[in-house]
Computed example of a mutant assay.
Amino acid sequence: MMAMTKTAHRRKRCIALIGCVAMIACATPGIEGVALAGCLTLPEQGEAVVAAIEDGRTLRLQDGREIRLAGIEIDPSRQAEAKATLASLARGRRVALRGVDDAPDRYGRQPAFVLAEGETQPLQRLLLDAGDAMVGLGIADDDCRSELVAAEATARVARRGLWVDPAALKNAGNPGDIMSRVGRFSVIEGRILSVRETGGTVYLNFGRRWTRDFAVTISRRILGSFEAAGIAPKSLEKKRIRVRGWVEGRAGPQIRIREVGQIEMPGAR
């Protein structure tokens, strides 16, 4: 009887130890023991202290590096507010850098997701929560993108920051307003009237006048990524979508799709 009791006791201790190991594995700490999730689970790129804020999404570190906040875009109308928010969150603080690639861009800036000491969320998410930024492109991790899109959506529903103006979310049925955004990153929502393929390009048309109305273009070269995501562009006909990207002025205003994440179904968020 005593032997059975000791065996049961050893089993109980073993189960408890396994549970502790699992908890540690699921809550690997970052700065000051912050449990990592979403964008913060990306590979480490080191830590440093922020010396200055260059603009609404660029930090200069004490070691001389310039860090570009990955995955977000700042509208020119919110540049001053975004810079002030970023300064209040990061200037003089130690930050941890995360990302899949630490190669600098053509301007010598290192893209990264950034966690400031004393915070539990990346700076990108805090700027989105305040309505000072929009979710951008180049977010390879699905969990990270979902985290940022959710933060943007929360700010938009609450009408914070740039979303205080309902017109900040552009209407695909108003091509004149969209045309004024040529060269700027924008978020546009509307119903696709038709889907057509011409040459090597698929067109998602939001109006009947191709010389004036808004359209989204998808190169056949990236259709494989849509198929991998379970999305057939033709199936989007008559659907209401939200699209983000840089507005180009061609026959009418257009956004060129570079990655699947540029297109969202509003009902899913």
Rank of each mutant, 00 (worst) to 15 (best):
Y107I: 00
G131Y: 03
A84L: 13
L61G: 08
A116G: 14
D75T: 02
R125S: 15
D129G: 06
D105A: 11
G92Q: 05
G56P: 02
I53T: 14
L61N: 05
I72S: 06
L127Y: 03
Q62K: 13
R91K: 15
A103N: 07
G71V: 10
R78C: 04
A116E: 12
I67N: 12
R78D: 05
P122W: 00
L137Y: 10
A84R: 14
V114L: 11
L59S: 07
Q79A: 15
V114T: 10
E117G: 11
G92W: 01
I67A: 13
A82V: 06
A133W: 02
D55N: 15
G108Q: 04
L123I: 11
E47A: 15
P104L: 02
D129T: 08
A90G: 10
I53A: 14
R91W: 01
A51D: 11
D55I: 07
P76A: 06
G138C: 09
D132C: 11
A96L: 10
A112L: 06
V135D: 04
A51Q: 14
K83E: 12
D63F: 11
G56A: 08
G64V: 03
A48I: 02
A80S: 14
R109S: 08
P111A: 11
K83G: 15
T120H: 09
Q124E: 14
D132N: 15
T85C: 01
A51M: 09
L89Q: 09
L89F: 08
L86S: 08
A90H: 06
E117D: 14
Q124V: 06
L59R: 05
E47D: 14
V100T: 07
R98N: 02
D63Q: 08
L69C: 06
T120N: 08
R60F: 05
M134P: 02
P104N: 04
L89E: 05
Q79N: 12
A133T: 15
D55Y: 07
A90C: 08
S88D: 09
D63P: 08
I53P: 03
E119S: 11
L128D: 03
L137H: 11
R68G: 00
G118V: 10
L126C: 01
R68I: 00
G118P: 10
G118E: 09
G99A: 14
Q79D: 13
G64K: 00
P122C: 07
A116N: 12
F113A: 08
D101Y: 02
G136K: 06
E117R: 12
A84T: 13
A70E: 07
V95P: 04
R106C: 03
V49Y: 04
Q110P: 11
S77Q: 03
